[in-house]
Design a protein around this nucleic acid. Structure first.
Length: 264
DNA sequence: ATGACGAGCGTGGCTCGA
């Protein structure tokens, strides 16, 4: 079975590439980020007409996350726990059952945090602390758990073409990378790094300054697996070719193949 | 290299992203 994450950068502007990619890939569960749409404006009918189940957690103008799946989730929760005053739509989580085995999939759009020196960076770090607490809680459930999305964190130097260009950026700060490392230290596995130590496994290329033709990318879209899910890991793919399509998102899908019979 | 790209909102030029 295939589970995937994709920062779509506007679902209405990206409907054609989303449908083309879904046709090509046929994933079982997809987490979308930056849908930039309220729930009522999400192109639900176009997706449901092709058999997809749709769960949204939208917001006007920016942010917003969604879950698409071939079979409906048995339950869905919206919003990251831990701060009722946080109104930004950045987290949605669903529970599925496959042949009697449960699988929980959390889809996140972690705050960017730029520019440094503004309230945005402490908001990012506070959000990561909440995410760590939530992940620890889910891990205690021992239900196979996937935490996938746009983390807005470059974990290591090999995850960026030009590390020195990012030293002043929130995505590459020691605090951001440390918080990502703490997630892994809880017992989550970065699916891509469990399968390869290759460099240039980027998931984002800026629209500006010819970043895509120059392969000036960064790896910031990650799929983290709980111990109960990592035992089912077959392979990971970064669908890089999608970045070359007409009207692409600046991010590409990350797709993880799991053996459902090995979920425990 | 980042005023350079792109989406949303809403009709001109902001905000936001990474």
């Amino acid at each position: 079975m295939l589970v995937a994450t994709w920062n779509i950068n506007g679902v209405k502007a990206r409907l054609d590439v989303l449908l083309a990619w879904l046709d090509e890939r046929q994933p079982d569960i997809v987490g979308l980020q930056e849908i930039k749409s309220v729930d009522e404006a999400f192109p639900r009918a176009e997706l449901e007409g092709r058999g997809w189940h749709v769960e949204t957690h939208g917001q006007k103008g920016f942010n917003g996350v969604a879950l698409l799946s071939k079979t409906p989730p048995t339950s869905v929760e919206r919003g990251l726990p831990g701060d009722t005053a946080d109104e930004q739509a950045r987290f949605i989580e669903g529970l599925w059952e496959f042949d009697g085995r449960e699988l929980r999939f959390g889809c996140l759009y972690l705050p960017n945090g730029n520019p440094l020196g503004t309230e945005k960076f402490p908001y990012k770090l506070a959000w990561m602390e909440r995410l760590e607490r939530h992940a620890a809680s889910r891990l205690r459930d021992e239900v196979p758990f996937i935490l996938a999305g746009d983390y807005n964190v470059i974990p290591q130097p090999e995850d960026v073409r030009n590390p020195s260009a990012w030293t002043g950026d929130a995505l590459y700060q020691p605090e951001s990378r440390g918080a990502y490392r703490r997630l892994l230290n809880l017992g989550l596995t970065d699916a891509l790094r469990a399968t390869t130590d290759a460099a240039k496994t980027y998931t984002f290329w800026d629209y500006q300054a010819g970043a895509w033709p120059k392969d000036n990318g960064i790896r910031i879209d990650h799929v983290l697996l709980s111990p109960e899910a990592v035992s089912s890991l077959r392979s990971v793919a970064i669908d890089k070719h999608v970045r070359g399509w007409e009207k692409p998102s600046d991010h590409v899908p990350v797709v993880v193949d799991l053996d459902p019979a090995a979920l425990r």
